[in-house]
Design a protein around this nucleic acid. Structure first.
Lengths: 191, 191
DNA sequence: AACAGTTTTTTAAACAGTCATTCAAGATTT
DNA sequence: AAATCTTGAATGACTGTTTAAAAAACTGTT
């Protein structure tokens, strides 16, 4: 039992340290030693748990993807109309514990590196397809078929674009305001 | 005269090679030697012309920023109404000679690295502010003040988001379709 | 509680490459 | 001849990963 526990604890510590360290230095530049120092461990222990630097990055993104997926599931549980479920998708993207500068930074690094790493690009494809199908499912109930694809792309690209911008921010973000803005964009697209 | 000419020719050759090589390998991973090979030159000559790898990246982005700025100026020259000028801003972003996978890749790498390089982040700020003020200026003539900021963010994030997605594409892009889609988004935001 | 045996965890040090940059010497152009 | 351009080779520093050995945690037995 506690054998498993230790591994889980280390995994989480190292992933948190990865988010901070990659945010501060960039994925391509940050070293295993820096991440390890952030976590109060040694570079070798990261390889012990994750196999490689790429494995660590994959695990970190898996962690964030899971957070996003769960946040979306929570919102879906209480939303009753297609429009509310669309709001829920946006709200998940800008949830308090997801929409932070370090996490948007990581996402940025993830996007930049995905084309060059089969393991990362696989995650990227899966996540994107999932969000896409959710958005599309709700839009179907709200728009005529001809406008579906335009509206979907507008919304999905909006979410990506906001994160992109957030990753460049010097100051802490305002998730509440981001959610409000996202709702306005939804209303703009679906009158 | 031709002393200057040679420098210009090399600059352009090396920048083109940079775009191809960075697209293929990623900025953090590509080596000076690979870029040089792509250009049919030596790594040392890149340093001779650009001083450093970072200098080369800065010059490359300066080149692309200029292309974008000029494309926008061309569109502005013929547009007569605020809506047409908004179309022109979008069209510039998705112009035939700008909206290609390698160039969107570079832009992606640029975004990812800007937070860690003062020289790149300066370029990023300048470019973003310029696009922002153009979009805002046209929107002012089309929307009540209260919706300005929402519409601007929707459009600007849309453009970023489309590029982000384009950078992941395996196949060649379709600039014409992208422009058509962008027009539809404009029409969605400004009925 | 104590202990020997076993497994899991940790890390210092070694390893094996890598790469941006510099430099000196030669090639080319003016 | 002078200025400009080019590059092979040397430099110097850095880094992900492996290894071997020690530390810590756990196990069942006494």
């Amino acid at each position: 039992m506690s054998r498993k526990r230790i591994r889980d604890i280390r995994n989480e510590e190292l992933i948190e340290a990865t988010i901070v360290a990659v945010h501060e230095r960039g994925y391509g530049v940050v070293t295993m030693a820096e991440i390890a120092r952030e976590a109060g461990a040694s570079a070798a222990s990261i390889n012990y748990y994750f196999g490689s630097k790429e494995g660590l990055m994959e695990a970190t993104m898996l962690h964030l993807l899971g957070k996003l997926r769960r946040a979306m599931a929570v919102g879906y549980a209480t939303a009753r109309t297609p429009r509310d479920r669309l709001y829920a998708v946006m709200d998940a993207n800008f949830a308090d514990d997801l929409f932070t500068v370090p996490q948007c930074s990581i996402w940025m690094q993830f996007w930049a590196n995905a084309p060059y790493s089969p393991r990362l690009s696989r995650l990227h494809r899966i996540n994107r397809a999932r969000v896409r199908s959710h958005v599309l499912a709700e839009l179907r109930a709200l728009l005529p078929g001809g406008q579906l694809e335009t509206a979907r792309q507008a919304l999905q690209c909006y979410m990506d674009g906001v994160w992109l911008q957030a990753a460049q921010s010097e100051d802490p973000l305002n998730p509440k305001a981001a959610r409000a803005a996202a709702h306005l964009v939804v209303d703009l697209v679906i009158p």
